[in-house]
Design a protein around this nucleic acid. Structure first.
Lengths: 217, 217
DNA sequence: CTCAATAAGAGACAGCGGGTTTCTTAAATT
DNA sequence: AATTTAAGAAACCCGCTGTCTCTTATTGAG
């Protein structure tokens, strides 16, 4: 996070005049905190600048507008996912979905919606934002646990098409967008009532494999 | 739509000074057209007023802000759905989803996102908007075709839980929100790859649940 | 260690939209 | 015809965007 020595911790008065990477990190933190505090609808360039202990001009020197700034912040806040192998696809998926749910809980609900609205008339930004979601680490993580299931012999290689794979995450994202939050029991519902039945109905092999790891609850 | 006689057709110069219902209808049309033309992000009270051939004050006398106005317009633009009985659940669902897809295609993609963002700090409006989606005519229509399937003996009465029923529409809405559009072949994919397999796998799950009930909690 | 190049931060600015208020005048009411 | 109601025009303040200028701290080349 740091790059030089003289630094104010995220939200703070500028101890001394910062530059380059140190300044950018402070701005990213300020933007993130501001977002969490007031929501996307109320975030302003001035608010971020003040919180970062700098001025608007400094922001406008780097980004042409708010969504462009947040697109950068977003990528800088990326986190790796590592879902431990639970031994079966269903529990792996519960873990992954729950990881996403917890992560989602820590960001303002209107952020995605705000970005969509803000980038509506800027096709380049809109596409970048969509790419961010499409190539989210979640997709990679899902591929990983599906591959594990295939290696295990739990499902057939082609059993899960791309729409089937992204469906659980699409539903979670949908809830976050529309309802502003994801209920904790939404994860088990998606897995038990929708994903697992879908898999079972899809082909005989997955049906039998899932029987072996039946849940009780 | 009309209530009095003297009326300007939707987008128009005020022939004479309108009042009450006639005026409100003109405003609703103007708001709708403006939305379709510039998208939610660029809609303004002034823009709507001008298009309706009236002034801002007239709007503010009726609604406190933009989302409140659109919430009213939304309900005034409601349409009934009537999906003819195709004889089986799958085709009924394809019809219903496609109806929704076509209807969705006629409204700006950032409208839902815009409403979410705009109502973020106004809990009452946010809740009203959510209710609008929850109690959408689509839910009722889905219940209707599911009931038909039950009556037909195609599925068991409890086979489809609420999350299972709304899943196809949640996915469609998700696509509209994130990708700004719904690809035509998204409907068959949702039905064939996700919904139908889920339904098939659901019966197996019920069997299994019954059999396991002896040694499970 | 000194000096020139670079860029941070303060602040002013025009423009615009939100939301409020005042006033004139048209239409409905009696 | 007289009175009440509300439409529409316009001015207003305020806050934010995006641009610009100016001063001054920091960097790094010599």
């Amino acid at each position: 996070m740091a790059d030089t020595d003289n630094e104010a911790t995220s939200t703070g008065v500028p101890a001394s005049r910062r530059r380059g990477a140190a300044l950018e990190a402070a701005i990213a933190d300020a933007a993130w905190d501001e977002l969490a505090e007031v929501g996307y609808a109320e975030v302003t360039m001035l608010g971020i600048a003040k919180r970062a202990g700098t001025s608007k001009a400094v922001l406008y020197r780097r980004w042409r507008n708010l969504p462009e700034l947040y697109l950068d912040v977003l990528t800088s806040k990326r986190v790796d996912i590592d879902i431990p192998d639970t031994g079966n696809l269903r529990d792996d998926l519960v873990e992954l979905l729950d990881w996403l749910r917890r992560r989602i809980a820590g960001m303002p609900a209107d952020f995605i919606a705000g970005m969509i609205t803000a980038t509506h008339r800027r096709p380049d930004l809109a596409e970048k934002f969509r790419d961010f979601i499409r190539q989210s680490q979640v997709v990679t993580a899902m591929d990983a646990i599906v591959n594990r299931a295939v290696a295990r012999g739990e499902i057939k290689p082609g059993a899960l098409t791309a729409p089937m794979r992204s469906m659980p995450f699409d539903l979670l994202r949908h809830d976050l967008l529309i309802y502003g939050t994801v209920a904790p029991d939404r994860v088990p519902v998606i897995v038990e009532e929708i994903f697992v039945p879908m898999l079972r109905g899809r082909d005989a092999l997955s049906y039998r494999a899932l029987m072996l790891s039946s849940h009780c609850s």
